[in-house]
Design a protein around this nucleic acid. Structure first.
Length: 585
RNA sequence: CGGGAUGUGGCUCAGUCUGGUAGAGCGCCGCGUUCGGGACGCGGAGACCGGAGGUUCAAAUCCUCUCAUCCCGACCA
């Protein structure tokens, strides 16, 4: 890879003003810094600087994947429809799958992921247990016709992804493959210089015992993760288990019989609390769901958030959606806002309560009657429940499910996901092999994704300031920005040229701002583009035999002696990299 | 898919309500003066105002349709 560039000759169109279409920070800075340009919604061109960074991320991913024993391949982006029919996904994948026909009217799609293609590849070639395990990966452009692409590179329709697929002879082998990928991912994100957390994640429709997401921590992230302050536990909010202290109940379940209270037009928890002068944690909210076509009432305390994923998993359901107002009327006999567990109308409606509701009584609930609620409800006494379950989101007031430590909620951006596929695809597509006994076995699969282009965006979301990007040294397009403030002074220009040559000779990647611009523009552009180290050579400095060095991350400046440039630079470089948690490579 | 908003030189915007034939700043080209945190002067190039149709003597402006882009939502009773 070319490791240097003169800015005077480079296609790096920086923008002084913020393009109107960009809302989030990474998108704005990528446009302003001349890294990308948008072609159409969710689809971007990578300009030289953007591509440089993208490739650096890809290289780190590639090196660690290879180190972990995976082998790189490149599969086609265009895939035949009948392959997708084999796994049933031609039917189920939905509109994210961009479909089209060729001249012979055959069905094709643009690959949003490659389980079908890779399984087809492997089933054709692998016959014996001796050929397993196998881990194949690629770094490739994916296309998903997202409902709503947004945030620039963060959620594009076309994006670069590393996807790996492992094939093992049995569960134990699959576990080992999974572990190897988990470790490789940790190594990757450490080398990228990003603050990240592997978190336990919901396995979604794929199923399987466990799955981890790799989250880059950033306040602008769309995901919420719960992390323990004491142990290693971290989980996606949708997965994080809530532990209820069992000694909490001291009410004796001896409250008086429930009775109706009039609550005219009080539909929401807030309205009800204001009206009755009570706290939200003394009432139960009852949410009605259409679960695979059947009615379900789910209850959580008034101040809690119901977690739909937990509900879905508890019921082993495939489709959970909030009931429509019509369904609510049909099932409860009351308009929306007055549902409660006592006397629910719908036949065979399932009633599920969050676990913590078991430890108190005297609840306020809806009465299944317009403008009416109940007080003094005791779930044990008054309701026939189908189950208690962990249904709500964890909060910072809860304790770690592993060690009881303090839990903090943080925002993150999902940049990697590892999970076990089991037999889902290998069975559907008959990817089998013969074991030692000559017996046919189905391969056990795993799949492992990293959003390469999303990493670029999330690195910026995590590391920026008002002036621009602060790239970690490992993925900055160039490690050093060398600014020549020569003006008309040929001596400075000459000295800067020499430094440029010297640095590249030392194997340092340099972006050399040799443009005929005023110093202010160069400073602004350098800060914007985010190279971690800035070297500024001006007339005064040259006279005094020094060059100014600025750490973009901290803003800290120091002066390096030109007489011992190589030595002083090397030591400064070490300092800067250490600040990023990186060694010298 | 529902809601909201916006399309005017490369970029950011004004002009639209109240029709009269297009403006500013930045950027770009030339010359000169400048040169350590986005300089200044003079001269210049660049837009059939997203597209189509309509109303009108006359449309960036009014009407209809359409295309594109952005934001919010598509779960908390």
């Amino acid at each position: 890879m070319e490791n240097r560039m003169r800015l005077s000759k480079a296609y790096v169109p920086t923008l002084k003003e913020v393009p109107a279409e960009a809302e989030v920070v990474s998108h704005r800075l990528l446009l302003r810094g001349g890294f990308v340009r948008q072609l159409t919604r969710g689809i971007y061109t990578y300009l030289p600087l953007g591509l440089k960074t993208l490739n650096k991320v890809a290289d780190i991913v590639r090196q660690e994947m290879n180190r972990a024993g995976a082998q790189e391949i490149l599969m086609p982006m265009v895939q035949p429809g009948d392959l997708w029919a084999e796994t049933g996904r031609w039917e189920f994948y939905g509109k994210e799958l961009l479909r089209f026909k060729d001249r012979a009217d055959r069905d094709y799609c643009l690959g949003p992921t490659h389980e079908e293609v890779v399984t087809d590849l492997v089933r054709g070639e692998v016959r014996s247990y001796r050929q397993l395990p196998l881990n194949l990966y690629q770094i490739q452009t994916k296309f998903r016709d997202e409902i709503r692409p947004r945030f620039g590179l963060m959620r594009g329709r076309e994006f670069v992804m590393k996807d790996a697929y492992s094939f093992d002879r049995d569960e134990a082998g699959a576990d080992a493959s999974y572990r190897a990928m988990y470790d490789a991912y940790c190594a990757i994100f450490r080398r990228l210089g990003l603050e990240f957390r592997p978190v336990e994640a919901d396995t979604g429709s794929i199923g399987g015992n466990f799955s981890h997401e790799f989250m880059v921590l950033a306040d602008t992230g769309e995901d919420t993760i719960a992390t323990c302050q004491a142990c290693e536990y971290a989980a996606n909010l949708e997965k994080a288990e809530v532990v209820v202290p069992v000694d909490k109940c001291d009410c004796g379940h001896d409250c008086p019989a429930f009775s109706e209270i009039p609550t005219p037009a009080k539909h929401t928890v807030d309205e009800l609390c204001d009206f009755l002068g009570i706290e939200a944690d003394t009432l139960i909210k009852t949410l009605l769901f259409d679960v695979d076509g059947a009615p379900v009432a789910a209850m959580v305390r008034g101040d809690r958030e119901l977690n739909e994923i937990k509900l879905k998993n508890h019921l082993h359901a495939t489709d959970v959606k909030l009931a429509s107002p019509e369904q609510v009327v049909a099932w409860t006999g009351a308009p929306v806002g007055f549902a409660g567990p006592v006397g629910l109308k719908a036949a065979n409606i399932k009633i599920i309560a969050d676990r913590e509701l078991d430890f108190e009584c005297g609840w306020f609930t809806g009465a299944n009657k317009a403008d009416t609620h109940l007080k003094n409800v005791d779930l044990r006494r008054d309701v026939k429940l189908d189950a208690y379950a962990d249904l709500r989101n964890i909060t910072e007031a809860d304790r770690c499910p592993r060690c009881g430590g303090e839990v903090k909620l943080r925002k993150g951006i999902e940049v990697g996901h590892v999970f076990k596929l089991g037999l889902k695809y290998s069975q559907a597509m008959n990817a089998s092999f013969l074991d030692e006994n000559g017996k046919e076995q189905i391969m056990v699969m795993g799949c492992y994704g990293i959003g390469v282009s999303r990493i670029v965006a999330s690195a910026i979301e995590q590391n920026h300031d008002a002036d621009g990007i602060k790239f970690p040294p490992s993925i900055a397009p160039y490690e050093v920005a060398l600014l020549s403030l020569a003006g008309k002074d040929p001596e400075v220009a000459e000295a800067a040229d020499k430094l440029y040559a010297e640095l590249t000779g030392m194997g340092v990647e340099v972006l050399y701002d040799d443009r005929d611009e005023r110093p202010g523009s160069k400073f602004k552009d350098a800060d914007l583009m985010g190279m971690p180290m800035q070297l500024v050579l001006g007339g005064k400095g040259l006279k005094n035999g020094i060059i100014e060095a600025k750490d973009r991350r901290t803003g800290e400046k120091r002066e390096l002696k030109l007489a011992d440039f190589a030595g002083e630079f090397a030591s400064w470089r070490r300092t800067v990299r250490q600040g990023w948690g990186l060694g010298v490579e």
